[in-house]
Design a protein around this nucleic acid. Structure first.
Lengths: 276, 276
DNA sequence: CGGCATTTTGACAATCGTCAATCAGTGTGG
DNA sequence: CCACACTGATTGACGATTGTCAAAATGCCG
């Protein structure tokens, strides 16, 4: 199986053979971690970065009353705590959802990557920004969709993300996550998740064979979930300019010509909501 | 009034006088923008970066059925679309919630800041990571808190964020956001927001005098909302190492000594939820 | 004063949560 | 190979939070 980190980062930036080589070596030594183990806890100041090679992990917070909320899924190719050093300490925890293969990258490796491989550096920030975009879409999901569409949306997102690292077929993937975990993800109870899953199955949208999820009609599920993959930024726009490492200095300060255009264009009213 | 951008970034990194000077000049020319105007739309590839100097703006997405979900509040000192160039295009829109003062920073200015002022560069990434942390906390808010605590939590967050840029007193701030906007923020209807606001008022937690919000007992409101300000990362940890601009190269590849410690420590079970 | 946006109210409906029991699947030890 | 234990899935009855609809009241601005 190809290194999922490379597969992922290739979508964020054009990598050189050297880049790939470095990423390949960095990932040689992985550890097996059982299900439901913490990789990092809130308050930690970790000295190494975790990379998921196989399995599902999640970011989560516990509430005072013992409830848990999952804020992100970490799938193969995802780095866990790349930039904590800028923030100081973890403001949330990370745990495995099922047995995982995890690489512990020492900070020195990360420093090497970001300081000597500008395309990787850029790709890592790209990945961080995509994570942020996913968080925004999750807020939409939590706030404005009923339970069945929430779940459908999550399943669509995971299909795309797993396909991007070669871990899903056209319409199926291994999904060893418990219904209680899904509840903690979507802000529902496991009981309600169960009801909704049954509904999706009886509607013929999905089928579950053990840990394997099959989406019978991907287009229909996406339509049902109102799924728009834009936010995953999976297709690399070819707008890399001369390169991030060039030392171009701002020519002058003050609004550039385009500013006034932008002003004029943007001062239009927000388009009124079109009720269907 | 002091430049809110400087006030904000000082919390992310130690700035030099030169840094402050540059930030001060960048912000000289601001534009007035009325309430409910789009600054950027989904799909745009903006050429300049917006900085909110006064008022409230928000990130939002529209759903096919005309519903709106707000995913972030932008308060004075916040930059709107700093890193779009890495992602390609906007995957969401940004609009004012009330009349605002906005600075349009041309990309050349941003390039100057990031390439010639390493501390500002670091502070800008710090701000981006804090935004991400706020998104995560919002997911917790949407997923696991009932409407009254959701609203209380939002009010607490805004109190802290506005205090950080000198725009709130100990317990009050101007809050010109409509109840419908609050609904679109918290995933509620404006009717329910109204009910909850009345409840918070009759419980003596808050008072609204026109556009001014007074929090009668900040500690009580925070306790009610289970508000933990960690995620805002407002107190700068003094863990800036030799500096981001040093060219230190990774000494060797492979797990560092601390990796095994971390492994041992982390392989403990996730602490079981303690039911209260 | 008049017009418009926003807030407020009330009755009713629906989604989703709670509780508690049962069923199914998996792995282990004898 | 089977009993046992345990986790996770499923079911049903009931309750509560939140949404819907529609109208009335209030406040703001020219």
């Amino acid at each position: 199986m190809l290194n999922p980190l490379i597969q992922k980062l290739e979508r964020g930036a054009r990598l050189t053979n050297d880049d790939r080589q470095v990423l390949q070596t960095a990932v040689l030594r992985s550890q097996h971690v059982g299900a439901r183990k913490d990789l990092i806890r809130e308050g930690d100041v970790p000295d190494n970065v975790h990379l998921i090679l196989n399995g599902f992990a999640c970011r989560y917070k516990m509430l005072p009353n013992g409830q848990r909320q999952i804020m992100a899924y970490l799938v193969p190719g995802d780095l866990c705590d790349l930039h904590v050093s800028i923030l100081g300490e973890m403001d949330h925890s990370i745990a495995t959802l099922c047995p995982c293969e995890v690489v512990y990258l020492p900070r020195s490796t990360i420093e090497d990557l970001t300081e000597n491989h500008s395309r990787i550096h850029r790709a890592l920030w790209w990945a961080t920004l995509v994570d942020e975009a996913i968080l925004r879409e999750w807020i939409v999901n939590m706030g404005r969709r009923p339970a069945d569409r929430k779940l459908a949306h999550l399943l669509c997102e995971l299909l795309m993300r797993l396909q991007a690292v070669g871990l899903a077929t056209d319409n199926s993937y291994d999904f060893s996550v418990t219904q209680a975990d899904l509840g903690d993800t979507l802000g529902l109870t496991s009981v309600h998740v169960n009801r909704v899953l049954q509904q999706l199955r009886s509607d013929g949208l999905i089928a579950l064979k053990g840990r394997n999820l099959v989406i019978n009609d991907v287009e229909r599920l996406k339509a049902f979930a109102e799924f728009n993959p834009n936010y995953l930024h999976l297709t690399r726009r070819e707008r890399e300019r001369s390169g991030t490492e060039t030392g171009a200095v701002a020519a002058e300060r003050g609004p550039s010509p385009s500013v006034t255009d932008a002003l004029a264009r943007n001062l239009a009213d927000r388009p009124p909501a079109q009720p269907e």
